[in-house]
Design a protein around this nucleic acid. Structure first.
Length: 436
RNA sequence: GUGGGCGUAGCUCAGCAGGUUAGAGCGCCAGGUCGUGGCCCUGGAGGCCGGGGGUUCAAGUCCCCUCGCUCACCCCA
């Protein structure tokens, strides 16, 4: 920390991701993209900021995320804008705006911004991977969405996570249940925690989510929404459970699962890592939002989706020691120990030539000893070192030295260098395959 | 917003009850091997001990303030 106190740093609650750690980010996004695209989802990009009303109307003014955590600003035209705090509202806004064919199956990767105090695996800017499927209320779509997330986690090597499942009902059955719950809670107001004893206001479901022992105890045997669903919602939920079981996606019913956004209806779910020690162990969550499209000005249209937190998924991977950081190795590293005014020109030209031949290559810059350049070659992870010095220069050759395999170094003609490297790499790859 | 912990080399950390030129491991650079990496050995560079004020003959060490980081509550990815 010898950095000057006057030097700027990344804002509180944000972080920089540098190589080699960033290579995991590329791979995790790549793995997600393959998985969801194989299921028919297409990349959808929307601006990181929207008119504030998109989030206010979509997520809900009363939610914490909108009410006290949103990064809002007025731009030079006086427009009220906000950085996106989550992914779904923007995608739905785009759906309403463009009327794509349904079902509209979209995937995204995006930063998300919330002004809250940072702590372990909670940031002011974090990153989410997600999908949205808009236009059908078929419960088999719920199964698809949940299974895609489940299989993504599994594909990374994660095993110690739990899928929690609940149904929030719909406009038909939820109001009656809320009234029932409010009545029961009112009778037990004295047993609830300080915060919830006085008022549970517009949303008694919040009390179920409270972690205080008093509230946990008082709500242990309270009526469950999943037991008071209307006919259609009950049938929907049953079909979802049946589908998950058929796909051997393990889940636990959790009537306390109350998600923080107002738009959820029917199926809601959350993936929690058992390996994460920190307070934040939710690695992904989502649910159905059959009223959201209408709330954002579209025709009544059902939808469902999820968001996955990249930082938390990688944290869970660390906790389970899977999906490790693996720096992307190079194919070749060019070493130049020629002398005189032309020093370095061979490395310059040969490196470019290799790259144009489809070989990943790097080199050392500046005047450095052979030993130093060899160390750099080793660090780069390159499979092959190409050495050019005064002897090679006058002989019109380069020395090809395998750095990983068992082979000895040998000379090849300067103009056959790229071909020889390609051949060596192929042989090396064949050995790898044979060894498996 | 509320509360706790911590700020010493690029990184991870030692520095006993305040006492002369602030240390280790790893990393980096150089040499041992005058053109050959990974192992080993030797040497080197790199710190106004987060910043400011105070107590003291003397402060990395004690006190106050400040900034930053971190963990937890709330909520969420």
């Amino acid at each position: 920390m010898s950095t000057q106190s006057s030097a700027p740093r990344s804002p509180s609650g944000t972080r920089d991701v540098l190589p080699p750690e960033s290579t995991r980010w590329e791979r995790v996004v790549g793995a997600f993209a393959r998985g969801v695209e194989d299921a028919g989802y297409g990349l959808t990009m929307t601006p990181v900021f929207e008119y504030s009303s998109v989030f206010r109307r979509g997520i809900g003014d009363a939610s914490d995320v909108v009410g006290k955590e949103m990064y809002e600003f007025t731009d030079r035209d006086g427009q009220q804008l906000a950085l996106r705090p989550e992914g779904t509202a923007s995608i739905v806004r785009a759906f309403v705006q463009h009327h794509p064919l349904v079902p509209f199956k979209a995937w995204y990767v995006t930063p998300a911004f919330r002004h809250e105090r940072a702590q372990a695996l909670r940031y002011r800017q974090h990153h989410q991977l997600g999908i949205e499927a808009i236009g059908t209320e078929d419960p088999d779509l719920d199964v698809e969405v949940i299974t895609v997330a489940h299989d993504f986690f599994r594909g990374l090597g994660l095993e110690r996570f739990e899928l929690k499942l609940n149904s929030m009902g719909d406009a038909q059955c939820r109001p009656a249940y809320l009234e029932l719950l409010a009545g029961v809670l009112a009778e037990r107001a004295g047993e609830l925690c300080d915060e919830h004893g006085e008022r549970f206001g517009s949303n008694p479901l919040r009390v179920l989510d409270c972690k205080k022992p008093e509230c946990r105890k008082a709500t242990a045997d309270v009526p469950r929404l999943m037991d008071h669903l209307c006919g259609p919602c009950a049938a929907h939920f049953a079909r979802v459970r049946q589908g998950l079981e058929a796909s051997t996606v393990a889940y636990v019913l959790d009537h306390r699962l109350v998600r923080g956004f107002d738009y959820y209806t029917r199926t809601t779910f959350e993936f929690a890592s058992a390996a994460l020690e920190s307070a934040q162990n939710g690695i992904g969550g989502g649910g159905r939002y059959d009223g959201l499209v209408e709330m954002l000005g579209g025709d009544p249209t059902p939808g469902i989706g999820f968001g996955i937190g990249i930082e938390r998924v990688l944290g869970a991977c660390d906790a389970e020691s899977v999906f490790a950081v693996e720096p992307a190795p190079l194919d070749a590293f060019v070493i130049d120990v020629t002398e005189g005014d032309g020093r370095g020109a061979e490395a310059r030209d040969l490196t470019i030539e290799l790259r144009r031949a489809g070989i990943s290559a790097d080199r050392a810059f500046g005047v450095r000893s052979m030993k130093s350049q060899m160390k750099a070659a080793d660090r780069s992870g390159a499979s092959i070192a190409l050495i050019v010095g005064p002897e090679e220069l006058s002989a019109g050759t380069v020395t090809l030295r395998p750095l990983r395999g068992p082979g000895e170094q040998y000379a090849v003609g300067r103009h056959e260098a790229a071909v020889a490297v390609t051949r060596e790499l192929a042989a090396y790859q064949a050995d790898l395959n044979a060894g498996q």
